[in-house]
Amino acid sequence: MGSSHSMPEEIQELADKTGFTLEQIEHLHRRFRQISGDQPTIRKESFDRIPDLEFNPIRSKIVRAFFDKRNLRQAPSGLADEINFEDFLTIMSYFRPIEMNMDEEQLDHFRKEKLKFLFHMYDSDNDGKITLLEYRKVVEELLSRNPHLEKESARSIADGAMMEAASICVGQMEPDQVYEGITFEDFLKMWQGIDINTKMHVRFLNMEPIAHCH
């Protein structure tokens, strides 16, 4: 916060880059300091400071996504050890809601960005495919809140989903064809019917600018 006032250009730059307003950046910065414990960077352990996150079944995946270099647009693979405020904003910008004045192309781009974030979350080994094993892991984590559902069921669900994905994405397969995993293109295909822009966003990030404009 203090630093934000001292370096207005830098903040403006961040705002341009991520699409957040200055107020949002300020708020996020406050939050960032809170999480990091007034350090310049956030490490994985820092997320332990958020008590509500504890109950999230896919907590590890989400935390991991914050350090994924693909999401940080730094490198095609790998995990960062720590992220600074700019990285934090980059991650947050994936959850920006759409704006009224976006045109088709922007919307499409926006949508793809969001989906990429999701895709990277599933694709933990960076090979550009969500393999069955990766998918299973996600499903297992998703179901981990329910102690009565066995791993077996998670597996069968993941397998079923995978088969479904194969049938959606590839359609009629050749006899010797093998479906190795969901690629990003397939991923897009599966999401065709769903309006992700209306779903993948967090309210607060949009609240302030509008409250401001009135």
Binding site: I50, M121, M190, H201
Partner: peptide, 19 residues
């Protein structure tokens, strides 16, 4: 599956931003 993942992700992000 994705929608469930979504719910959790969004809840987590809201937690992270403290909203």
């Amino acid at each position: 599956l994705h929608e469930h993942a979504f719910d959790h992700i969004l809840a987590a992000v809201e937690d992270v931003v403290g909203h």
